[in-house]
Amino acid sequence: MNHPVAAGLRANIKSLRRYAMALTRDPNDADDLVQECLKRALTYIKDGKDIENFRAYLFTILHNIHNDELTRRKKKGIQIPFEKEGIRLVYPPPQYSYMDCKDLLDALDKLPDEQRQVVLLIGLEGMSYRGASDVLGVPLGTVMSRLSRGRNALRILLAGGLAADRGPGAAPRRRAVETWHEERRTANVG
């Protein structure tokens, strides 16, 4: 006899891990986050409480923990361990060149946390605006506002904003993401 939540549990956990990975960009941090979420969920269930929307519940916990961690780090000051930078190098993009993927990752890194969260929840996890609003605990209009700003910022960064960061004389990467997909389509046809 399967509990309705149990049926999609594995898929929800994997989805949560994917999101944690995108949010933290660090496999260890992401796995710690996921594990902490599951621990809290288990405690909640053991207390006899019911969870109607397990996916939303897990993502909400993850956000709470992640935001607590961000606050803690802000107080402590920014620390970038060597391993974190190294991880970028050992993550080969599956389809595109290293530089193309790095642009998207760098652009995401430049977004404010709240915009990046919304872009990832909706663009990557396919969450509805209402769902994202529930998970983040902000009004629907705020979600829309952050999404719009986040996507626009990404677009500008990918279209050339990052060139400024690469130094004077660097060629702007106009419409970089679109170019990736065009190249991919061409490669598949060939």
Binding site: K14, R17, R18, M21, A22, P93, P94, Q95, Y96, C101, L104, L105, V119, L120, G123, L124, R151, L154, R155, L158, A159, R175, V177, E178, W180, H181
Partner: peptide, 16 residues
């Protein structure tokens, strides 16, 4: 561009 952003995110992270 927005759609390509979504596709790019999936290409980056769907392997997990």
């Amino acid at each position: 561009d927005y759609r390509n952003q979504n596709r790019g995110l999936h290409d980056l992270y769907d392997r997990y």
